[in-house]
Write a protein that binds this DNA or RNA. Sequence first.
DNA 1: CAGCATCCTTTAAGATACTG
DNA 2: CAGTATCTTAAAGGATGCTG
Lengths: 136, 136
Amino acid sequence: MATTTATQRRAEAKREYDAFLAVCPSRQLLDAIADKWVTLVLTALDAGPARYSQLSRQIAGVSQKMLTQTLRTLERDGLVERTVTASVPVRVDYALTPLGASLVAVIAHLKDWAEVHMPDVQQSRRRYDRRARDAG
Amino acid sequence: MATTTATQRRAEAKREYDAFLAVCPSRQLLDAIADKWVTLVLTALDAGPARYSQLSRQIAGVSQKMLTQTLRTLERDGLVERTVTASVPVRVDYALTPLGASLVAVIAHLKDWAEVHMPDVQQSRRRYDRRARDAG
DNA sequence: CAGCATCCTTTAAGATACTG
DNA sequence: CAGTATCTTAAAGGATGCTG
């Protein structure tokens, strides 16, 4: 039936594209660092190893759920190393792995661009909003 | 009353930190490019200007709602320029601005890192998952 | 101290139908 | 062609209480 063809084709194209994205390294990286807390934790650890509670205090806005979740993901990705010292109470230290450190270096480039160009972006936003308001 | 102090302090710390993040250029940039479609549209336009329908076909997985929304945001940020040609039917062209092009250059660094190191990340993930399965 | 489990709300994203 | 408007679903995130 011709009625379903267009929809089916679209659906299949989407599936294919999703499959492509799933194996695309750039996309995987973006997925990994896009998260709000990932970059904050990574840059916090760039200053040196830290304990869970230190990170929790330093990254003041994070809930403990998100901090734990973020650290687990980073550990799974091999970007952060988790060291448990069996004492009472338990002590857990987190540190960047060499891989994690190399990623922080790349993120630093983003930071550089941001510090130079974000003012331009903001100005553009203001102008855009002003036009929209004047037009509306 | 002492019972509310801890909670209040936490809440205030969070507000302050959120305010800090709101003016942090790096965070703003991350917010801007973290989006799944932003980088895809940006890199698609890096190959040259394109019309709405071209982008829609090229980025096969995107819904037309998300494409429009992404393009509007990029236009607002001054990263993409939108040119309307009043014909019947209307024709709309999108192109990177110099600012947008400079951002794509930075994103390319991410891409480079991804192509080199994502295999390591994936291996780490497999190892982590295997350990977790064996332990469970 | 460093979490885990649960519930609950807010937000983002997708499908769908219609328009200048 | 290039969108807008609306509705609904998926999921991310936060608050809270409990544990080795």
